[in-house]
Design a protein around this nucleic acid. Structure first.
Lengths: 140, 140
DNA sequence: CTACATCCTCTAGTGGCTAGAGCTGCAAGA
DNA sequence: TCTTGCAGCTCTAGCCACTAGAGGATGTAG
């Protein structure tokens, strides 16, 4: 079992070196053993953890949610109701965000299409920004 | 012309009092006159500015972009090419974000649907998080 | 043995606010 | 006129999830 340096862990997990140290500092990743020269030496389990964390972050889960999810993973006999609730909450967030971005997209498209590429005085982009009444009130 | 306090400006613009002061501190909103007692006293032009800024922030423009847009607004004879470019860049960002969130949504839905509401050991939510290979590779 | 990549800790910065402490100003009611 | 109490003021620090950089130690290949 050869030792895994932090750089190697970063390469294998896709999480950057300073980010790994950051995760350790906030208690998301367990402290690894150290070499004689005080360098971190990871084990396979750390790599699994890092993969889990990375995937969860990519899905937009907050660090606190990930902490809970990790705790759940460590105890397979627990009910998965909490995990389910966290994922559902995140799903609702994502759905809301999508709706809101679609509205933004529509508004931005109108601005861009309306731009006659002339002077700012007639520019629809500036105009719409200046006067909210001209936009569609879809969300804000 | 009665004086507009910062609180009144906040009420009329929908931008919170500390946020207005913050915008002043970063040079996004011009410093208003002060009363004898050193209190900010705004004019109509400040309210227009605030409305513009607020709308632009709601559309997700960054403060630096807004700075540029405001400068353009102040000079109606300039070409609106920059405004157009900023809006287009933002539109592309929004479109990418939407695509990415749709992929997340799909993945989250699979996780949530697969959850049998039993023990964590069989929970699809935890399982998928732990093993990225199980998800759809749509984006990350 | 030397060069050089990688590692270490520590502090500070990012963006766009938000919260709080501890003060002063001001208008309305008693 | 006095008091009450909200509103304003400045300044510092905190939020999230990192990221950047200084300044030094370690580890490895030639």
């Amino acid at each position: 079992m050869k030792k895994i340096t932090i750089g190697e862990a970063a390469r294998q997990s896709g999480v950057k070196v300073p980010t790994i140290r950051y995760y350790e500092s906030i208690g998301l990743l367990a402290e690894p053993d150290r070499s004689e020269g005080n360098q971190r030496s990871y084990q396979q389990s750390h790599l699994h953890r890092l993969a889990f964390i990375r995937h969860a972050r990519e899905l937009g889960f907050e660090v606190d949610a990930i902490r809970t999810l990790l705790a759940l993973q460590d105890d397979p006999n627990q009910s998965c109701a909490s995990a389910d609730a966290i994922a559902k909450a995140r799903l609702i967030e994502v759905e809301q965000k999508i709706r809101s971005l679609m509205a933004l997209k529509a508004e931005l498209e109108m601005m861009v299409e309306g731009c006659g590429h002339g002077r700012v005085g007639q520019c629809r982009v500036i105009e719409v920004l200046a006067d909210h009444g001209q936009c569609m009130h879809l969300h804000h």
